[in-house]
Every structure is written in structure tokens, then in C-alpha cells.
Design a protein around this nucleic acid. Sequence first.
DNA 1: TTGAAGTGCTACCCCAGGGTTGCACAATTT
DNA 2: AAATTGTGCAACCCTGGGGTAGCACTTCAA
Lengths: 112, 112
Amino acid sequence: MAIDVGDVLVALADPTRRQLLGVLAEQGRASATALATRLPVSRQAVVKHLNVLESAGLVAGARAGREVLYQVRTDSVQESARWLADLAATWDRRLLAIKRAAEAPVAPDRES
Amino acid sequence: MAIDVGDVLVALADPTRRQLLGVLAEQGRASATALATRLPVSRQAVVKHLNVLESAGLVAGARAGREVLYQVRTDSVQESARWLADLAATWDRRLLAIKRAAEAPVAPDRES
DNA sequence: TTGAAGTGCTACCCCAGGGTTGCACAATTT
DNA sequence: AAATTGTGCAACCCTGGGGTAGCACTTCAA
């Protein structure tokens, strides 16, 4: 179930969702209703956000009796961070190569 | 002008924008019209995306005669990656502390 | 000086998604 | 059994933003 970085980025792009993650990390585990009391939105909104976060692999929910307890999955956050760093590195190398080619003497090049 | 990670995440959340960044990194520098020919959207759409990316600090545009050439700024991507990694580390420590507290023996308050 | 190529801007369409309310159903508690 | 608490839909509103078309303006090359 390799994480989709696109989903992670979309999930993290929303401020309320980031705030929700912050509160959840602070609590350790918590239910949607419990989280809603510490956020400026309704319980249903929190549930929606939790679903998005769970689909992105940023959070895991497990039923415990009548309530569902959620928990942050820090590994997927770390994986996304690595992906971002790799992306930056790749672009860096490419840009460096281009710059070097531009400074090269008479390097023949194909371009359309 | 410290970058706003929220802006970066929003900017990277869009697939077209990521594709645009990819093409731009591949080209080194390019104008909006040039980029539009290599993307499935119109020139105006590309311009909009470039504005978003520039506001997020992911791209820099400079006028060159009658055209504006854009270029990827990899440092802000790297900075965001670091921010994400730090965030994951913080949450990790916090969750670990919570877990340890939960597993701790019921240390009763002893006093005499 | 004329025309082509590139940019800037405005208005507009359209829909994904963040937020809400309301109610039905399930699981505890008393 | 009744009241309480929590979850799970479903319908709905409304703004934001991705995308387009159209036109005015600027720069460069014949």
C-alpha cells in the first residue's frame, strides 16, 4: 500500500487538516467527537477530514467499542518528506546539468 | 521573505502544477507560451499556475526582452521537505512519550 | 511601418470540496 | 427500558479555484 504523494500533498494542503493533525498528535489517540471539541468546526467536518487523512495514509482509525479512535501515522509523513527532498535533489541535478551545458564551449545540442 | 509552507503545500497539491514544475525543471528556463505547448492546458492556465508557484516561492520569473522566463527554485522545495521531516519527528517524539506514559507503572504518589 | 509573436488582464463557466444541518442507527449507562 | 452518547449517512449551500475565450498592449523582426 505504497502511499500516493499526491494524496498526501492534497491532504496536507488544507489548514484545518493540518490543525487537526496537530491536535491528534498532541492527544495520541482520539475520537472524531473528542477532536471536534478542540477544533473550530463541527464533528461531521472532522469526520470528513479524517477520512481524507486516512485515505492518504496519514492517520489510522480503529473501532473501540462504540467509538472510533484515530492515531497519526508519522511514517507516511516522513516518507513524503523524503520524496520531496528527492524531488528537489533531482531538479537540482538537472538544473546544474543545464547550466553546465550552457557554459560549455561548443557543445552541439539537439533542440526543437 | 521566509517561505510559507502552507502556500508550498497548496501549490504542490495540484497535479497540473507538479507536471508544470517537472517540465520547467527539464527545460531549465522557459516562457509561459513555450511551457503551454508541452502541457495539456492553455497558455492562460499556465500563467495562472506560474503565478501561484511564484507566490509560493517555487519558481522565479524574469523579463527577458518581450518574454518572461521562469526557472525552478529548488531551495524552497528542500526547505519544505525539511519542514515536513521536522514535523514528523516532532509528532514521533510526542507519540512515543504518550505511549511510554501509558505503559508506565501506576507510580503512586508516595509521601511521608 | 507593418505584422507577427508574446504577454497582461478581464469576464465567464463549472465543479470539487469544505462546511453545515438533520436524522437514523448502534452501543453504553442508569 | 429509557436516556445518553457516539457514529454514519444524505442532502444541501456556497465559495474557491482550475480552465477557457477574447481583446488590448508591448516588443521584435521584415
